[in-house]
């Protein structure tokens, strides 16, 4: 009985930790878009807009492929 309870508690703790990690990741992904777009220097996840802006200004493109950490 004690062993089962320990296993159940352990599983619940693990699940809670995984849930927290997933929530953290979700927050990071959402905040990344918010912060980068607010800073204004980067075109976020919109390649056609980048090409259009480069064509309009004559500037070269700097395209960064970067996962949200």
């Amino acid at each position: 009985m004690t062993k089962s309870l320990t296993l159940l508690t352990g599983s619940l703790l693990l699940a809670a930790t995984a849930l927290n990690a997933a929530e953290d990741r979700r927050e990071r992904v959402l905040n990344d878009r918010k912060e980068v777009e607010a800073a204004g220097h980067w075109i976020y996840n919109d390649l056609p807009k980048g090409f259009a802006e480069a064509a309009r200004t004559g500037r070269p493109l700097l395209i960064v492929v970067r996962c949200v950490p």
Binding site: V29, W42, I43, D46, L62, I63, V64, V65
Partner: peptide, 20 residues
């Protein structure tokens, strides 16, 4: 950096593999 049009891509979904 100001002399570039800076684009950030955060996903590989639908990434154009003929270019990237």
């Amino acid at each position: 950096m100001d002399e570039f049009v800076c684009v950030r891509l955060v996903q590989a979904n639908a990434l154009d593999l003929t270019l990237f």
